[in-house]
Amino acid sequence: MARFRSVAFSHALFVAPALVVSVAIVLLPALLTLLVAFADWDGASTPTFVGLKNFQAVFSDPVFWGALFNNVQWMVIFLTIPMAIAMVAASILMRRKRSSAVFQIIFLLPYVLSPVANAVIWQNIIFDPISGLLGFVSRSWFPLFNPLTDTRTALYAVAGVDIWHFWGYLAVVFFAAMRQTPEDQLEAAFIEGASGWQVFWNVTLPNILPTVALMLVLVTIFSFLTFDYVYLITQGGPARSTEMLSTFAYAFAFTSFQVGKAATVALAMSFFGLIASLVYVRMSRSEIQL
């Protein structure tokens, strides 16, 4: 009996390191963020409680609403364009099982490279008016402008780079899901003379729907958190046209040292992601056999 109890005790010790690391790095600082949002804090001196002052300041700032609108645009773009590109690519790969491994690796390459490398490569060899491909095409064939310098197009240009980096991941995930479509269902559809589109719509899509739903939820969450490509390529400019909640919060914390306001913006972006997170947790609960 004592040995049985010692098993439970040992297992509690086994889970302790992971729990301690996660609580110390994620949970406690997250709770601190919640507190700091109600305080004036420069990160060094003692914080002073200011009530809802940060929230009033942030919510009356047009830059906040502009950033939120950009995040929403980002979400709409990422819920459609990379999803569609990846879905078509994965469907095509289904009819090319032998060469699919090569295509998957090629499509994954931009995804496995660091955002720093990708962003700097695009800036210098594609967008740059002097050394980039755009500049070369403008000089030699037909005039093009640098979309990063125009407030109306900069957001879409950055999104384009991020889509270039991201869609291959979706294609690999969708393809893995499609491969689990029962072979007899596909055969039956073909024997009945269904067109490729009918097979996709009536057989493949229903089978991969749970995976698609999960990807939609994850893309929604990450649309409100997106940081790397925007910060690296435009820093939120020109004229704040690509400002995101994440870059807005980051500047509060590390440029003007208004950590209270940074925390407030962080709470706002987490809130939008949180709704999608709840859906994610609900979806995964049955999966992990709780």
């Binding site: 996660s22 790095i25 600082p29 963020t33 958190l225 987490s270 992601g273 997170s277 994610y280």
Partner: peptide
């Protein structure tokens, strides 16, 4: 069960939710 749900929630937790206090504490 609670621990499993905790880690499940932590999967999608935004970095910015804990980044700022963590930085200034470590500093």
């Amino acid at each position: 069960q609670a621990m499993t749900i905790y880690f499940l929630c932590a999967t999608t937790v935004p970095i910015q939710l804990f980044l700022f206090p963590l930085y200034f504490v470590l500093a």
